[in-house]
Nucleic acid binder design. Structure first.
Lengths: 213, 213, 213, 213
DNA sequence: CATGAATGAGAATTCATTCAT
DNA sequence: GATGAATGAATTCTCATTCAT
């Protein structure tokens, strides 16, 4: 399993930790979005969070911890919103619902996702691993749903095609977060609808033969 | 048009500038890939390029210039390899060829693309604009090809669908560069073939009706 | 009016700022006197002030700020010592007293004045303006005193002569600071006495006619 | 005597040396005036002189040599213009002529003098000594003329008063160069006339008794 | 003699982190 | 628990000087 990395704090009161870290994350996301992780100083984070630099360091040990907390909190939210799907048996309907939930989630947490994808490379090794694993968990969710659609005969795909397609679905989510500037004339509903249609069509039906391929 | 930003050099010999900058770019890409732009020092870049820090600064003015040169050189390569397609009238065959070229290009310059997409946000405003415009030029190529397929009746898509699809094609390229770690068991040929098939299928044929959409 | 330029500090405690800056100024004057502003490094200033380079920069923003603080502190002292004269009505007696105060002041703060006059050109534009204005304020003090002596009939001078003479008085002060090396055999009292006599005589009485002028 | 410091050159042709150094000095004065010695780079000097940095260093050994050459050339000019006075026996008339020459000289070479007085502190020890000695030579000229006026009974001054007065005369020259910004409404003729009158009056006649002195 | 590319010591400034209050 | 002053390692960039061509 993907064990949560503990971020050390010299404060004991758990609920206080939670509160302070929430403030911290909110401030940090805004700043990281604007200026990136490296150009943001710990002082700025503290200020945005509403407390002093000294206090900031009561709740974390390094600047990278802040980035980790941001990423971690995103996945907490992801789980909160997609867990209901985890138990359902896969079918095209469920898949469509999953995409709806996933893309809506990204739409709601656009800034957070952008920050996470842009800055996660600055995480310490173990934290990066944790985040990548979280990513794979999501991909795996799509993979399972697709596989079950194939099992039930709703889709016809090979193992490898399933794998690629699940990454494909995942990446479409990133696209909505990252290319918003180029997709200003789409609403999230339009985006979801068009993409879903497109993807389903790509996966379903007979293969078209391509010359030269 | 998208005018090339001049990077000032205090050296006059143009061919020397080209040579030194090539050394510089090669070294920088390796380092940026490993540690990112911010964690790479100018001294390291100079060393990797094979000259002193003083010499480095004879050929650029700021560290950001190095990043810009990296991005710029990528697009020089892109143009060198995709320009032949620029003149062809769009058709499904041409589109398929374009994707082949594009994905192969990304495969060949994987490191460069990853660096560019991860670090371009650190470019100064005008340089970032230049790079984003280059990106849009590529998207526009796909857009034109798709539109011409629609004109010729090979594809059935609305304007908006074309737009989204062209971004889609573009983003698939990034996916190959970025998610190589997760797609180790695919060759670039497999990737190209599967993706192409998938995309064509997604765009062609009757729309499947989706419940709830 | 000549508004004091604010020098930003990231430290909040005003009295601490004052204390640290005083340390800084003392150290800086010594160093600037010895080696000039440009040959003095910020590290040396910090060391001479008794704290680390990091701490230095908690109290200023740029090296030039240090120079400004030096100049500003000189004028604070000037005001503290000459303000009593500001209110008095001009007369020869008052003028003589003013010169006594002014020359004594320069004698006491010789190093500071030398540094200020030698290095002020390195100040940023606005700070330089501020310092020049302070200089003019002093010249204006002499101008007023002279003008009032003329009004009361104690002196006979034209407007222009007053102007030139006031600069003259001012420059004599600089002379004491700058040419001490050449005037080793004068005490400040002798200097004051001789100069005063000389100046008064130059200004009073009938004009001597000079051939050719 | 004040022996001319040799500035080493790797070029043999004396007339070429003279020509190149003249170019160099002209360029340097302009630059030093604008930005000061320290903010001017050797590259800029070379460019302003009309040759390359390599060539610059064929005619000097260090940047400070340039400053020295500037100062030295000023004194060459001073000698060329004041030598005629060196032989004359002192009298009030001669003194007045000397001041005329001296102040006119400073007016003509204002930039050079300002640069010299502002930057000479950056000269290496021996060069500085040389320049200070040159200064003293000029003061000594005034001293001699005054002393001879006293001898002939035209003036009544003690030894010490003569010394101070000669510095005084010298410093008035600097004043014209340095405070031009504040004396915009004076012509050099007016300045010379007023100052001369003022000084003569200050030195001649009965001493006025000052209370408290 | 002239050129200008190469060098690297050195300088200003920043900022994550600590710790005494 | 909270604060914010202090620290100094690290970083970017400059520029006097050299030397091969």
């Amino acid at each position: 399993m993907n064990k949560k990395r503990e971020v050390q704090s010299s404060v004991k009161d758990e609920s206080l930790i939670e509160k302070r870290r929430a403030q911290m994350i909110r401030g940090a996301v805004t700043l990281f979005k604007q200026k990136g992780f490296h150009r943001t100083t710990t002082r700025e984070i503290a200020k945005a969070a509403g407390f002093s630099i000294g206090t900031l360091y009561e709740y974390i040990r390094t600047k990278e911890d802040v980035l980790y907390l941001v990423c971690d909190s995103i996945y907490d939210e992801v789980h909160a919103r997609l867990d209901s799907l985890d138990i359902e048996k896969g079918s095209l309907d469920v898949l469509v619902t999953a995409l709806e939930h996933y893309y809506s989630l990204i739409d709601d947490m656009q800034d957070e996702f952008v920050v996470m994808y842009q800055e996660s490379k600055s995480l310490p090794k173990d934290a990066l691993q944790y985040v990548l694993n979280k990513e794979l968990e999501m991909v795996a969710l799509f993979e399972r749903l697709l596989a079950e659609c194939v099992d039930s005969g709703e889709l016809k795909m090979t193992q490898k095609e399933i794998k690629l397609a699940s990454h494909h679905l995942f990446v479409q989510g990133q696209m909505w977060a990252f290319r918003r500037w180029a997709l200003r004339d789409f609403t999230i509903q339009e985006f979801i609808k068009t993409q879903t249609q497109f993807l389903l069509q790509g996966m379903a039906g007979e293969k078209i033969s391509i010359q030269g391929a």
